[in-house]
Write a protein that binds this DNA or RNA. Structure first.
Lengths: 169, 169
DNA sequence: GCACCTATTTATAATAA
DNA sequence: TTTATTATAAATAGGTG
């Protein structure tokens, strides 16, 4: 709905993409609010930019409440995949290999970080490292998700586990 | 956008309300998908009817991941400050502090990875580590983007830099 | 980044099936 | 509930300040 019809794919021009993001983000939030008011339903919405910026909307007090409600919706059953955009990834890579390469990657990054002039690290190198780290993270996540599928009681002791890790860090 | 303009308040006629809900719900989800594709952002959306029925959308694998990311966004600060439509950007953190904490995080993960029974690491711990790593990555990225803004010639020697890093890894 | 503009495209209200 | 129609209201692409 504009001067021109646009394709449904990532807008490549970064500047244009950002302008469109600003406009459509506010449009989406407006629609979410209208739906919640007109139809008397609870709506929760979160948007993460790739820079890690967060935008959110919720119809009630706090999104955390809606999230709780969402999570409790799945308690006691095996986690089913969300119907949208089902992921078909390749899980062929062995866990062993995956972890070794991830470890090496971490070492490389660590050595960079430990350098006193890390801040002067070439920005291009950082981009590359970020991308590799992200890719590794994705693979590990997908493996974890698989593990979760097999052990559906994982959510029960979540709080305890988080507390434990917190104390370690 | 219809034959008539309607007020922004709860539709009292239950039948009409439900028809409107069906139409607008699908419209909202369509908009959410478009935003995520066009602007390359992560979007999570949940809708609860007052009868407890759930409708959801997310741009990635699972809403649970987006929720985790959302929750980790608020870790380590005063809780319960999540007002609607708030742009939560905190770039106040000094680069120095940022890199130190990132380094510590890497060390922690590294020690986990190096353990022989890393594969048996509790899945919940891994989720937590993933989230922290992701958050750190986001912050570093945004700082890098800022740096790029100031030095716009960065793209020129991108290929060379990537080749260099490749040979290091 | 935001506010405004205008030509177009989209969403949808009313209605019926 | 979903689907189709169609007149109309809204959203928004591209642009300017």
């Amino acid at each position: 709905m504009g001067r021109k019809k646009i394709e449904l794919k990532r807008i490549e021009d970064m500047c244009n993409r950002h302008v469109t993001f600003c406009k459509r983000r506010s449009g989406l939030i407006k629609k979410a609010r209208e739906l919640s008011v007109l139809c008397d339903v609870e709506v929760g919405l979160v948007v993460f930019t790739n820079r890690g910026r967060l935008y959110e909307f919720c119809s009630g007090d706090s999104l955390l409440n809606i999230i709780k409600r969402y999570q409790s919706h799945f308690e006691g059953r095996s986690q089913s995949q969300s119907p949208n955009e089902v992921d078909t990834k390749e899980h062929e890579e062995s866990e062993e290999t995956l972890m070794v390469s991830f470890g090496k990657l971490l070492q490389t990054i660590q050595s960079h970080v430990e350098e006193p002039d890390f801040k002067k690290l070439n920005v291009n190198d950082m981009v590359h490292l970020e991308n590799q780290l992200e890719a590794s993270l994705d693979k590990i996540k997908s493996q974890r998700v698989e593990a979760m599928m097999e052990n559906s009681s994982w959510i029960d002791n979540m709080d305890m586990a988080i507390a434990m890790v917190d104390s370690q860090l």
